[in-house]
Design a protein around this nucleic acid. Structure first.
Lengths: 341, 341
DNA sequence: GCAGGTTCCGAAAACGCTTTCCGAACGTAA
DNA sequence: TTACGTTCGGAAAGCGTTTTCGGAACCTGC
């Protein structure tokens, strides 16, 4: 908190510096460093040595100016806690190769004005592409047609079918959860989930019902228990179910939080998980799933994969074409003790 | 998923285009758009009209090339879920002004190799500054001395005292928690917290003890209950406390997760929160604090503020000097029902 | 009608890099 | 020796800006 010497220590070396030190022209230096032809081995070595001495690091901006590509993509999110955007970002980083492409992350905080603002900023920075991550898995307004760069929507699809959207396959995920429970030998399965206005909740329920029907089973409690995405709802819905004296040996919860409420209520009722009732959640939110007792089996939306595919689609669009429509990506079952045996 | 027309619709207009359309030189166009002097009102209007027609948006890269500033800062994090980095990023965005400065976010995933890699990439992109966010609030290795740009460490301080680090003031936070409970009239206060190897845990405990001492009180249970950052530990520590038949009318928990375990165990024992025992947590992790029953009072580390101050320090460093050492930033009490009355 | 001062505009350099293209130097074959 | 091909290296243009500086046009007061 005290030092006050001027901070700037050294200006980064430029290609010009390297060339001068190596005694060649900047053209030759450039070619040598980039492995181009028309440079003798001796000169190349000389240039590399000079670059090393100056710890030269090429100015990516300048390079981008001439190449017409910046190697940056923008990620616009509305996800306040980063639970969605960080995994997606990591997937994208992986797919691009972190050294070739960097991600500019902007949080629009659910505000369309701010979103437009960020969009303009990113475009003026000449990002090569855009990933838009919504806050809830339902169609959201398109961020704009005819943008100068390709755009991929992840998690929340665009309402405009001309856009390309990547979402997790909630229907299959619903089937997957039921399949898992049935293979455990469970036959009286209830589905307690969140807000019925969420398309994802509907899709998961649809998938679950389809799988049950295919196996000649019905839903314990006779209906899907829609409610809110809270522990409290998980508890009260479970109490309702138990109060009806229906047979119950498994619950498919629409989120890990709901699942925790379910487990709570089951324990209260003297039932043991998974012996008496197996429980599976959704989201695989580590902090909830692993700190639950017993640890919670869950369906993971594979967000890293979403990010990875988004990056691939963008990369393809850079030198080619971008598709359109909604692409469903598979979820993944993460079994833990709450569905063990 | 079917459209395959070539994607690129239009190349963004350049200053050259604007100038041509307005019938002036690019120098004049530049001056007109940037509000410089030496441009007549008429010409300026003409240029602005042309820019509007072409929906011109200046190329920030090119601008950065000549200005020697990119208007980008790098944020290197190891925070897998983004719980820390997103709030810090938002604070930084706010302080910089999202239109002037953008944030390149890189996740090092706790890997020093990857961190070095990201560092190099960011430097070659000529970011104007760097924010390093650690995963746990303990000193971490410096990312490097004599970098060409100013660096601020947030949340986790750098081990090198020559670096500037911004951390939350855990000692004061500990005092704050105790003060709050005492003002509620509580006198038998226990402290159940996480891993003793965490400096933050020690600091909070130190603050709590100091405040108790200042008020002539001791710690219920006679010692700080260090353990793990889990609900399970919160439960078992609480059971131990209750088993000792010590008077207990409040618990200061080291994290919101621990606090939830504490509340669970209290309920199990037939005690009511906050009537019999008040509970305060730490982190103010919304999802835990608000879904707890009753909603959990907690100490918020003010991460947005951390980000904001980081941005301010960097901005000051751009045209001046960067301090060094560890700067403690205040936490904030968020009262909810678990300490009501 | 002319020195002097304002205004306004444009040519050109610069930022750091890549790439095209031309010329120099060398070696080889006739 | 001349002619030709090959291999290297450098000059220069260009990417899209900003900024400096010189000059043209105009106006003022004598």
């Amino acid at each position: 908190m005290t030092s006050t010497e001027p901070h700037t220590v050294w200006r980064p070396a430029t290609l010009h510096d390297v060339a001068r030190l190596a005694g060649v022209s900047i053209a030759t230096a450039s070619k040598a460093l980039n492995g181009r032809k028309h440079v003798s081995a001796a000169t190349r070595a000389e240039v590399l040595k000079a670059a090393g001495l100056l710890s030269y690091s090429p100015n990516t901006l300048a390079r981008g100016l001439v190449a017409g590509r910046t190697g940056m993509v923008g990620l616009i999110t509305s996800d306040l806690e980063g639970r969605l955007s960080i995994p997606i970002l990591m997937g994208a980083e992986d797919a691009f190769g972190a050294d070739r492409t960097s991600v500019l992350l902007c949080d629009a905080r659910g505000d369309a004005i701010r979103e437009g603002h960020h969009l303009r900023t990113l475009l003026s920075r000449r990002v090569d592409g855009l990933i838009v991550v919504g806050a809830r898995p339902d169609p959201r307004p398109s961020i704009g047609r005819d943008l100068p760069v390709p755009v991929v929507y992840a998690y929340a699809p665009s309402a405009d079918p001309a856009d390309l959207s990547l979402v997790s396959d909630n229907v299959s995920a619903g089937r997957m959860a039921i399949e898992h429970l049935v293979e455990l030998g469970r036959r009286s399965i209830a589905h307690i989930t969140g807000d019925a206005t969420y398309g994802a909740a509907q899709d998961r329920a649809t998938g679950a019902l389809a799988e049950l029907t295919d196996r000649g089973l019905g839903l314990a409690g006779d209906r899907v228990y829609f409610g809110t995405w809270t522990e409290a709802w998980g508890r009260s819905a479970t109490r309702m179910l138990l109060g009806r004296h229906t047979a119950l040996d498994a619950v498919f919860a629409g989120s890990d939080q709901i699942a925790r409420g379910v487990i709570d209520a089951l324990h209260e009722a003297g039932l043991e998980v998974p012996r008496d009732v197996a429980v599976i959640g959704f989201d695989n939110w580590e902090i909830f799933a692993t700190s639950s007792r017993p640890p919670l089996s869950s369906i993971d939306m594979n967000l890293e994969n979403l990010g990875r595919v988004a990056a691939e689609r963008l990369a393809a669009a850079f030198d080619g074409t971008l598709g359109s429509g909604v692409e469903q990506l598979p979820c993944r079952l993460v079994p833990r003790e709450s569905t063990a045996l």
